[in-house]
Design a binder for these strands. Structure first.
Lengths: 334, 334
DNA sequence: TTGAAAGCGCTAACAT
DNA sequence: ATGTTAGCGCTTTCAA
């Protein structure tokens, strides 16, 4: 292993100068710099991250805590985090909590002692458990608000509300919303937003769930909805769920969008670009990840923790159509 | 920040003893140990990972390089890696390459200098680029073989072959295989395996692709297959692809499995447990991740690099059925 | 069983 | 602009 001392010796300078030449090139004379760089290059020198971290107190690592990698909602956020981090040469220390409160807390604790900052994605832990870390290091949440902790809020609640309003505008009077997992802070926000939007639009709302973000769950729900004949439009909170609904409704002989309109309050692009042509949200997940890092690195989080809101955009597709007549009874195929 | 010295002082012992009490409890007297542990607990002591890494030369970090997180195939592997790592309290340093050779190599380089080992998942880089790291630190590949580098091979090629054989056994004489991305080592292995199996079973094989692991890609392929009337069974290499095919075939009025049998050479559980009831593979992805770590930590990789083969299992579902008469013409609905 | 002391590789005052 | 020096927090000989 080649150390800074080796490079310094080879270049005929002191360790300090070698260090400067490599880390802060503008602090040394041009020719010295060249010599050091050449030596370092020739010897294949690489900084020892641990030694560096020990002296500077910065590890160059950001801990990212995610409930699951299997959910296409979280993956892009992590990718965004990486993108933002790479600008400073930092890396992601990843931990998957599998959605368990205890492992989330435990993993966070493990990460906390080796990173410069912590990103909690959709944490399920209580506020106190998250705030506990803020005294040790910078913390930011995504898709969750914790008092006094900076957070990125992806406005899917606003997005579902837009969907409901859109459906109402198409004449739908009875809408079903299939909501997310119990205990999810964001899921509850979305539920409220949907209810509020439904109330304002004067549509009759059925909230189903909590339901897992899985295809089979969508299939199961599809059966209930097929039976619920008054409903003319369904909104699903997750992309997998939507797919299950799509498949299930067809199986039940319910046509989309002729018999029933279908929309997702999630972003479908990661699994399918534009087709099937479904009314859904554009959710800038990667941007959310980037925003999280920006927040994390923000100099002095004012006493009132900063919040970054990420807007979503309604993309109207062919899966939603004008409601026909009075409910679905008139149009059902069988 | 409370350091070992603080704990030592509080417990009335030397740093060395405190260190031992915490790291190798059996090297100190019971009562001393108690005292140190109590002090450490009371003061909320935590090891400084960087300092530890600097002295021991072990960072407790394993670099994991993955082409994408959006693909449900990779996520469970990473989860498996984490599980295996957690036994020793190690962590994952994650990097997503987005499938680009250059960023894969660059990211690997960055990780290499801060980790104890490197896991390449389905790397796209040339052999030489991967082998280059083996001189620096332990390396293992998943879903790819590199001479002299230990690797975990998930036997999806064997799995697709099983599927083809199964279909042949059901009387299918014309099968389409929709294969994976160009430049993917594994995709080529699967292609070969399918061709071989088809030859052995005497079935007529159409290889379509390369195709992206996306729903829209499946929809597009479905159109071609619907037109290709002789084909009575389709095998898709990815779960998203399969979903697209499923949806697309129905749109085209092709029934599954009456008109056409459908199977996936991927594992569908992460997106949907058992339904839709599709013939697919059980692919122990998490085990593959665990195996990778086992390989990585194996004491002395013999000169001939170790290979671990992960078997897949064919799960026959309702999406495949006996071929009826002579091709699909007789059974098409319209 | 315990302690003293020497470093691991690097950076950051402080001098020069 | 460059060098000297003193650690960062920990583990690990080596002695006692």
């Amino acid at each position: 292993m080649v150390t800074l001392a080796d490079v310094a010796r080879a270049a005929g300078v002191s360790k300090a100068t070698a260090s400067r030449a490599l880390s802060r090139p503008d602090m040394v004379a041009a020719d010295t710099r060249e010599r050091v760089l050449a030596a370092a290059g020739a010897m294949g020198f690489e900084f020892n991250a641990s030694a560096r971290a020990l002296t500077t107190g910065r590890t160059g690592l950001i801990g990212v805590l995610v409930p699951s990698l299997a959910n296409p909602y979280f993956a892009p956020i992590v990718t965004g985090v990486q993108r933002a981090l790479s600008e400073h040469g930092d890396n992601i220390l990843l931990a998957v909590s599998e959605g368990s409160q205890s492992s989330e807390h435990e993993l966070a604790g493990k990460l906390a002692s080796r990173v410069d900052g912590l990103v909690f994605i959709a944490p399920v832990s209580p506020d106190s458990a998250i705030r506990e870390f803020t005294s040790k290091l910078p913390v930011v949440t995504v898709d969750r608000t914790v008092p006094a902790v900076p957070g990125v809020l992806i406005d899917t609640p606003g997005g579902v509300a837009d969907i409901v309003t859109h459906l109402a505008g198409l004449g739908h009077r009875a809408i079903a919303y299939v909501g997310g997992p119990e205990g999810s802070w964001m899921a509850e926000r979305r539920n409220s937003a949907v209810e509020e939007a439904a109330r304002r639009s004067g549509v009759d709302l059925t909230v189903l769930g909590p339901v897992a973000p899985r295809i089979d769950a969508g299939l199961a729900v599809a059966e209930r909805i097929a039976a619920e004949r008054s409903v003319t439009a369904v909104v699903a909170y997750s992309s997998y769920l939507l797919l299950g609904l799509h498949l299930g409704l067809r199986d039940a002989g319910v046509r989309v969008p002729e018999d029933i309109s279908l929309a997702a309050s999630d972003d479908l692009t990661s699994i399918s670009t534009e087709r099937p042509d479904t009314t859904a949200l554009r959710v800038p997940l990667e941007e959310a990840g980037i925003a999280a890092i920006r927040l994390l690195q923000e100099p002095n989080p004012p006493k009132r923790a900063r919040r970054l809101r990420i807007a979503t955009e309604l993309i109207v597709g062919a899966s939603t159509a004008r409601a026909t007549g009075s409910g679905r009874l008139s149009t059902r195929r069988r």
